[in-house]
């Protein structure tokens, strides 16, 4: 279900931290509807690449275009607004707010865009239904299992119908059963057209959910290959 329109385009992106070169002239495109897995050894620049695409960090050189907009030229506020409307993120450690219920954690993303509390909660409830965690909506993060927490995090990422869903080691903190559930979820999302970029060490996740694999080594794209989903 991919199209030729690139959702993400990186052109000669370089990122330096002092003397360390984290990314060294990365050029990459992700088309709408694609599910791309980024893999590579520790320190190869996977997380840096994800941060660049998410607008969480700025490149030292090169251009980053996401959903038709140049992120490398945006200031902090514009980047925030861009993330709010066009990107969804899932983290290894979920990053839920302990003081908010599962439902409020998810509704929060919509409320930041200006939606009323009622509207945000209704949309959040739809997602809770879709993700099979409706019964856990009023539970606080400390009382949720790892898999449930990650589903809540996915729901939050999807609240504003993002053009691109970024996942950073989404199964890294989960047991195998919960990891399987999250993989199924990501696969389902991609199959209904959600563009995915997954940074992972987990080959099973990559082969299960991604249609293309980008391998990084020493900050450069070492190899790109199409994947047959298992």
């Amino acid at each position: 279900m991919t199209t030729e329109t690139p959702v993400v385009r990186l052109d000669g992106v370089r990122k330096e931290y002092g003397d360390t070169v984290a990314l060294d002239g990365v050029t990459l495109e992700i088309r709408a509807g694609e599910a791309v897995a980024v893999m590579g050894p520790s320190g190869c620049g996977k997380s840096t690449l994800l941060n660049m695409i998410a607008g969480l960090d700025k490149p030292t050189a090169g251009e980053i275009t996401v959903h038709g907009e140049r992120l490398d030229t945006m200031n902090e506020t514009k980047l925030s607004l861009f993330r709010r409307h066009h990107l969804g993120m899932i983290f290894q450690f979920f990053n839920l707010l302990d003081d908010l219920s599962a439902l409020d954690n998810v509704a929060l993303a919509a409320q930041l865009t200006g939606s009323s509390a009622g509207t945000a909660r209704r949309r959040a409830l739809e997602l809770f239904d879709e993700l099979g965690i409706a019964t856990r909506r009023n539970v606080y993060p400390a009382a949720l299992s790892g898999g449930e927490r990650q589903r809540v995090a996915v729901a939050r990422a999807l609240m504003n119908r993002p053009a691109l869903l970024l996942a950073d080691e989404p199964t890294g903190a989960l047991d195998s059963k919960a990891g399987e559930q999250v993989m199924d979820l990501l696969l389902d999302l991609n199959q209904i057209g959600q563009t995915l970029l997954i940074v992972t060490h987990d080959e099973r996740l990559a082969h299960r959910c991604a249609s293309r694999l980008v391998e990084l080594a020493d900050g450069q794209v070492a190899r790109e290959s199409a994947l047959d989903r298992v």
Partner: peptide, 16 residues
Amino acid sequence: RRDLGMLKSIGMTPRQ
């Protein structure tokens, strides 16, 4: 810090 980072990641502006 973690909460703040998460809030910023889902689109909370510096001013917010």
